[in-house]
Nucleic acid binder design. Structure first.
Length: 273
DNA sequence: AGGTCGACCTGGCAGC
DNA sequence: TGCTGCCAGGTCGACC
C-alpha cells in the first residue's frame, strides 16, 4: 500500500479540493470497506456534512467534518482516494464508494483488494489504531535517543523493526529497504545490536528518504495513485526495492532478495553490513 | 512483552 | 487458450 510519502501526497492533493465541500450523497458500491458502523448509517451520517480539514497520521488519512466527526481512510495495499471533476461514464470496477460533492465534483474510493477501510468516529482518541501507533518520523520525538531506547528490547531484524508501526508510524516494505540501503545497514541485523552511529545514520536516512519520496509524489509499484489519479515519480529513485539481480548503484554487485516476516526485503550484501 | 504466522481479498503474471 | 500457483505497498488477532 501506499506508505507515508504516498499518503502524504494524497493528503496534500485532497486538501486543495475538499475543505468547504459538502457531501451531497454517499454511494456505497461495496459495503465491505466500511468498518465499525453499518454502511447505511455511514452514508446517512455523512450526508450533508462539510469537510473542514484533511490531515494524516501514519498511513491513515483523516477528514475532519463540520460536526466534529472524523472520516478515517486507510488505503492499506491497494486503496486510492481520487478526486474527479466529473463522474466517469463507466465507473471503474475498483470503485467502492463515491462521494458526490456540493460543487458537482466527486471523491472516489477505489480498492482492488478490499483491504482498505473507511471509518467514521467521533474522537480521534477512540480510534484504536492511533492508540498503538509510534511517533511520526518527522516529529522531533523521533530522534536517535528515542530509537536507541525503543530498539533496546527488540531482537527482531532491523528491517522488521522499521516496519513495525508501534515503533515508528508510516514506514512500510518499500521504504524500509530503501532506508537501510542508504544507511548501509544489513536488514538482517538485530535491532538491538545497532551501534549509536548506525542509529544516527538510520535516523538521518529515514528523514532523507521519506522527504525525497514526498517531493517526488511517492512510488507507484502497481496500484498507487495520488489524489488526482496520477502515478508517483519516486520509482526511478528506488535503489533496491524490487530490483533483485540488478546491479547495485554503488558496487555493481547484484541486489539480492530475502524474505523476512513473510515480506520481501531487497539489499546489497556487499554495501550493507 | 516480544515475536511469528495466518487471515483478510483480488488480479496480474509466469510457467506449463 | 486456459489452467495453476505465486506474488503484491498493511493491519490485526491468535498463539508461543
Amino acid at each position: 500500500m501506499p506508505e507515508l510519502p504516498e499518503v502524504e501526497t494524497v493528503k496534500r492533493d485532497l486538501i486543495q479540493y475538499l475543505p468547504g465541500q459538502c457531501i451531497d450523497v454517499v454511494r456505497i458500491l461495496d459495503a465491505r470497506v466500511i468498518r465499525g458502523i453499518p454502511p447505511k448509517k455511514f452514508a446517512e451520517e455523512l450526508k450533508g456534512k462539510t469537510f473542514k480539514d484533511i490531515s494524516r497520521r501514519g498511513k491513515a488519512i483523516i477528514c475532519k467534518l463540520d460536526d466534529g466527526q472524523h472520516l478515517i481512510v486507510q488505503l492499506m495495499m491497494t486503496g486510492q482516494l481520487v478526486h474527479a471533476a466529473s463522474l466517469s461514464k463507466s465507473p471503474l470496477k475498483e470503485t467502492k464508494v463515491i462521494f458526490e460533492l456540493s460543487n458537482g465534483s466527486y471523491l472516489n474510493y477505489n480498492d482492488q483488494r478490499l483491504f482498505g477501510r473507511l471509518s467514521l468516529i467521533q474522537k480521534l482518541e477512540d480510534f484504536k489504531h492511533f492508540a498503538i501507533l509510534g511517533p511520526e518520523p518527522f516529529d522531533a520525538s523521533f530522534n536517535p535517543k528515542f530509537i536507541k531506547e525503543s530498539l533496546k528490547r527488540r531482537s527482531v531484524a532491523v528491517k522488521s523493526a522499521l516496519m513495525d508501526h508501534t515503533f515508528v508510524a508510516g514506514i512500510g516494505n518499500i521504504y524500509a529497504s530503501e532506508i537501510l540501503f542508504r544507511s548501509r545497514i544489513n536488514p538482517r541485523r538485530r535491532a538491538n545490536r545497532l551501534k549509536s552511529d548506525e542509529i544516527k545514520c538510520m535516523h538521518k536516512m529515514t528523514l532523507e528518504v521519506l522527504d525525497e519520496a514526498i517531493r517526488y509524489r511517492g512510488s507507484s509499484m502497481r496500484n498507487y495513485r495520488d489524489g488526482q489519479g496520477q502515478k508517483g515519480q519516486f520509482n526511478q529513485r528506488i535503489k533496491v526495492y524490487a530490483r533483485e539481480h540488478e546491479p547495485c548503484v554503488c558496487c555493481h554487485k547484484p541486489i539480492i532478495k530475502i524474505v523476512q516476516g513473510g515480506r520481501s526485503t531487497f539489499f546489497c550484501k556487499n554495501c550493507q553490513h
